[in-house]
Structure formats: structure tokens, C-alpha cells
Amino acid sequence: MRIVHYINQFFGQIGGEEKAHIPPQIREGIVGPGMAFKQALRGEAEIVATIICGDSYFAENEAKAKAEILNMVKKYYPDIFIAGPAFNAGRYGIACGTIAKAVKDELGIPVVTGMYVENPGVEMFRRDIYIISTKNSAAGMRDAVLKMAAMALKLAKGERIGSPADEGYVERGIRVNYFAGERGSKRAVDMLIKKIKGEAFLTEFKMPEFDRVIPNPPVQDITKAKIALVTSGGIVPKGNPDRIEASSASKYGEYDIEGVFDLTGETFETAHGGYDPVYANMDADRVLPVDVLRDLEMEGRIGSLHRYYYATVGNGTSVANAKRFGAEIAKKLLLDGVNAVILTST
């Protein structure tokens, strides 16, 4: 069986951060961690090519990098595609997840990658692909490679994939039925007794949970601050140029409001399918208060209103997508020197 392996510039032994900008390149055969995979695959499969891409290059040219890499993968007719492991490297993890998902969806080739559970790539891609749970650094390479190789062989052979605990991958959130050893009532009584005694028990169904973030310190001088607007209320330029979905949005939009002093029914509308759109379509300032912020800007009450605003539809949007949008938007805002954010929701 044939494998194509994806790694970054560091594991590709090209260099560290200073080489993170290199575009994708392909090498015949094994590079870097490929050697460990060779052992773990025990001759059942062979890495025929290794693709190396700089993490920054991938992050900054995602669409282009993806297309380039897909073309490279295609040429080698692999039975399986392995990316990483990326451990706790955030950009590398996102790149592994992005490219692995693309190979699976667009080329129909099974994929596996590996990451540390807190790598942002995990939350973004765990529903789409098998991500082997690894340690947080390359010290965990041996173990990661063993599990990824075993998983790769199973996938390539079309074998049944066991539970996350059995195979070592991150839960994908898919509910699978099976017959338990005890009937439900007995399991309930056993769980109750454990709960009464304060012993550990494993719920069979996890209710959704929410985590918290510590508040950031306040803005020191608002009259000098650059304020950005973000909304989950779906306000978009008329015609919804990015075609943001009315619910379960898979993307967000970035819109230039330079020279815009008032959102009107002729220029802006809502793409949101989760509320009656009549009021927002008449006057989108009712959701995204550009008019008032422009006044405050002119009066010197705030430093400036950021040139771009960001919008998505917070209606049935998966937690994972919302997290991803938030993280990506925040990154852009920081790069643009924004000091504070007003986020409006309906």
C-alpha cells in the first residue's frame, strides 16, 4: 500500500521559524518522522512521497497551498494520507487538519493525523477526520507514530475502526449504538450508587458544557482606542456576497466600511435565518451600530472605528465553527492593531 506523508518545514529538516514561509515541495520517499513510520508499518505499507510545507506559508496562503498540495498528492495515487503528527504546534496542527480533510473530501482517500488534545486543530477537525491523540511535544513521537500507523493500516484496509479509547483517536462526537453487558436499569442503579458514594462514574451521555475565559483588563484610553465591530447577527452587504448561510454557518465575512456612515436598507441586510429579518433589513444599524460609532468617532469619543467589520450567522452554528471564527477574527484584529471589540448578537 502506498502512503503520502505531510510534514512541516521543521520536521522536514529544512529549518525553524525562519523557514516557515517556504511553499510546498515534494520529495520521493521518506523524510524525518517518516523513518519512524517505516518501522511501525512493518512493510505493510510504504511512504512513497513526503510533502513539506512551511507553516506560515500554509496559514497565509491557505487556498493556494491546499490546491498545490492536493495536486502533489494526486500524482502518487496513495491508499492513505498521513499528516503530522503536529503535537501542540498550532499552525502545523491546523495545516494538517485542513489538508487531511481536503484529501479525504476531495480525493476520497482515507486520512489520519495526530495532535495534542489542546492543539486548536483538534477542535476544528475532530468531527471530520481521525486525529490520534498525542503528547504535547515531539517527545511523544514514538507512541504517536505507532498509533497513527496502526490506524492508517486499518483505514487503508477498510477495517472497522474501534472506539476512541481502543484506537487512541480524539472523540469525533458520533454516537454509536451497541449492546451493553447489563440492562439499562441495572447500569442506572450502579451509577446511582457510585454517585451517592462520591465514586467516579462515567455518564453515558454528556450534556453540553461551557468553559470560561478570564476577562481582559479594560481599555485604558478609549479616546485613542481602535474599536472593531463583530456581529453574529448576520449583517452583510446587500446581496450577501460571501453567501453566508442562514443557519449552521460554515464561514464568516470580512467587510470594508471605510466611508460608510450609516447602514441603509439599500446597502446592507441580514443573512441570519434565526429571526424575523424585516427590522434588520430596513435598517441594519439596528444590529450593527455603525452610525452611532461614526458619530462617536467624529466627536473624538473613541479613537477610531476599525475599517473592517466581521459578520457571521450565529444560528445553529456548531461550537467548533464559532470557536474557529472567533479565533481567526481575533488574530486578524490583533494584527490590525485593534484595541477592543464590540460584538453584537440578536
Binding site: I161, S163, P164, E171, R172, G173, I174, R175, V176, N177, Y178, F179, A180, G181, E182, R183, G184, S185, K186, R187, A188, E204, F205, K206
Partner: peptide
Amino acid sequence: EIQVITGATSEVGFGYLTTKTF
């Protein structure tokens, strides 16, 4: 779908069927 089968997912735990996350 198993929802058409009498008693398939008994909520008083009369059966053995259960679910786990993959």
C-alpha cells in the same frame, strides 16, 4: 430506523442497547 421497533430504546432500561461516542 430502530424507532419503529417495539421496546428498542426502552427509557426505563428494559433493554441492553446503549450508545457511546466515537
